[in-house]
Design a protein around this nucleic acid. Structure first.
Lengths: 131, 131
DNA sequence: GTAAGTGCAAAATGTTTGCATTTCT
DNA sequence: AGAAATGCAAACATTTTGCACTTAC
């Protein structure tokens, strides 16, 4: 089991995130999980989320304003390049990494790039036809 | 005065942000401002920051992990395209917007882009020579 | 003068921690 | 058996709110 022991709490958290079609907040995870594990404590979710983050299995997002969401990574070295619908919060991947082209010129200036992220917000096709 | 009345609290907050060479957190603003206005309440800073955000004079960042920072906008329609040094937190602007080139293809898929942001983190020239 | 803004204290929110108990391995 | 994880309650940190007082206009 990645990131420690295989508890049913952790199983549920992973499966909830894996099956979600968009990033979830701690509360959303909690509200889903209590249906199956009514006695689970929120601190358990916080602790497991930390473990999963440390083990690079999930990633953290700041969507709208200050709300924090988590998403299961398909590939451990995914890096954040997303198109997010403000309505339904669906997350699409960017097909290419537009940073790659300008990376060289930035590094030429003496800046060492450690990570980068790109986020595009808007309204997806589906939501715009339903409005 | 943009965003309401011209109080000395607001004057100070604006001038602190204008003169900062990097984004500042609420606490950093507070610690600077109490030197001049010892009785200022943190809630006043929160309220003014909200006002300035609504009036599009400053913008909000999530730097490292969950720390929130604010920065004075040079131009009201600046959009976030930054290169940030993880060490000294200096913020540099990206010379070009690499999104522009892929915008058309995303919109062609039926997605309406509302806003986007790009953030590149790393170590700046100055900090890497001092290590 | 009056409405907006402030300071203060209290409340609400979100997250973390300590500890006794439970559960994996 | 032993270590790690859990549930619970309390602690913490951050942000928001209510209200009487002050200040800008």
């Amino acid at each position: 089991m990645p990131g420690g022991r295989n508890t049913k709490q952790k199983q549920h958290i992973i499966s909830i995130l894996k099956n979600a079609d968009r990033p979830l907040s701690i509360n959303e995870i909690y509200n889903k999980i209590i249906k199956h594990l009514p006695r689970i404590a929120k601190s358990t979710i916080y602790r497991n989320i930390d473990l999963l983050l440390e083990n690079n299995l999930i990633e953290k997002f700041h969507l709208n304003d200050s709300e924090i969401f988590y998403r299961f990574k398909e590939h451990r070295n995914d890096h954040a390049h997303y198109i997010i619908c403000n309505e339904c919060k669906s997350v699409y991947n960017l097909p290419t990494c537009p940073i790659r082209e300008i990376e060289a010129s930035i590094e030429a200036e003496g800046f060492t790039i450690k990570e980068h992220q790109i986020q595009i917000n808007g309204i997806c096709k589906h939501c715009s036809t339903n409005m």
